[in-house]
Design a protein around this nucleic acid. Structure first.
Lengths: 211, 211
DNA sequence: TCAATAGTGTCTGTTAGACATTATGGA
DNA sequence: TCCATAATGTCTAACAGACACTATTGA
């Protein structure tokens, strides 16, 4: 069982890597993983591994997929199961309990199976981003709309139109403005928001043929 | 490893069930499954099991997810991996090599873990139906647009507007009309089509908040 | 004053869905 | 003839994206 723990940090998606076990080269890093004990609940095992590595429970977890022996893995296991976990932006002072946040576009060489897991985890998020409020789980409790849009753009892999993004967000009634503003350098300070979903929309999306 | 093999038959989605092994009650049926041998490729094992059960290779396969011991399974395995497979509408004469097509809404009681697999397999299809041309894999080589719309409605779980469906289909340039018509009972005969994707569209779908 | 970012109002082209109408077979 | 289904044209409301503009801070 391997874990892809993701967060939003410094304008990028970052994954949590731990020092490779087995000694050897001391600079090598890898995804957190451990053998699955028989009879163990998958979700419980993944949640436990996340808590150990992160120092706190993950905000969200989901299975990604299973992998077989065709890609090399640091353990000599033939089948691995990958989970993806999300956690809010870590405070700069308190890093993870064990490990280091590495931006997705600065990944060191990983064992091939783990490299595939990272890619598949992000792809899995991408397919769920407009069906579940996962973007909010990557941000701190209060955030600016520009930060939120940045997360969506990272997850979707493309830039979004600002006015349209805010219109859709307002229509979805997902966030609540706070009486606080934050200055991020040069320009006008941004109002802070918090995630506060109101009521469900009756989706009503039609058949699309996007392939 | 368990297999959820689906097809479109008589206006419904149907799943392929085989007689339960282990003797016992001779009317019991279950999903096809077999233990995974260590070192075996997951995809290859699933494809082999599909070919044995179906008598022919499946048109498409994908992992669904892994399950643990919290739900009972006919084998005494603690962890199962479910795959979903699609196959075109079977000819009425030539049934599956081993097993029987059962409409999704007439499922007999299944082992709880397999019941969850069926639900998850359909849910997984639902999320992919507008991202991959899986609907065509459930139909025979030639089909009417009403049949195609019926498949989409079953996969999406809701009814679609006929004119809009055909407009979107035409814009996607996925099907080609044939010089054949088929009469389905009372009304005007329907033109037959075949799957013939032309060129890619540059998706361009924006951020949606459908939850 | 300038640069940079936040936030909003208006316009327009696209499109999903409603509605109506024609086409064509079987009963 | 009537009915059921196929297939298509037109209209409208909704909306994504473009554009422009105002607001508010730091340099």
């Amino acid at each position: 069982m391997d874990l892809v723990i993701l967060t939003f940090r410094q304008g990028e998606l970052a994954v949590l890597l731990v020092p490779a076990e087995g000694g050897g080269n001391r600079t090598r890093r890898e995804l957190p993983w451990r053998p699955l004990e028989s009879g163990e609940s998958l979700e419980r095992a993944a949640a436990g591994l996340a808590r150990e590595t992160l120092g706190a429970p993950a905000a969200w977890m989901e299975q990604v997929r299973a992998y077989d022996g065709r890609l090399r893995h640091p353990g000599d296991v033939s089948v691995s199961l990958a989970f993806v976990a999300l956690t809010p932006t870590p405070e700069s002072r308190a890093a993870a309990a064990a490990g280091e946040w590495v931006p997705l576009d600065q990944l060191p060489p990983l064992p091939p199976r783990q490299r595939a897991m990272v890619d598949d985890a992000v792809a899995a998020l991408r397919t769920r981003v407009d069906l579940a409020p996962i973007a909010f789980l990557l941000l701190p409790r209060t955030f600016t709309l520009s930060q939120l849009q940045e997360v969506y753009e990272l997850l979707l892999g493309r830039s979004l139109h600002k006015a349209s993004f805010r219109r859709a967000l307002q229509a979805a009634r997902l966030v609540q403005p706070l009486a606080e503003w934050r200055s991020e350098g040069r320009g006008r300070p941004a109002q802070l928001y918090r995630y506060a979903p109101a009521k469900r929309r009756t989706s009503g999306r039609s058949a699309r043929f996007e392939f």
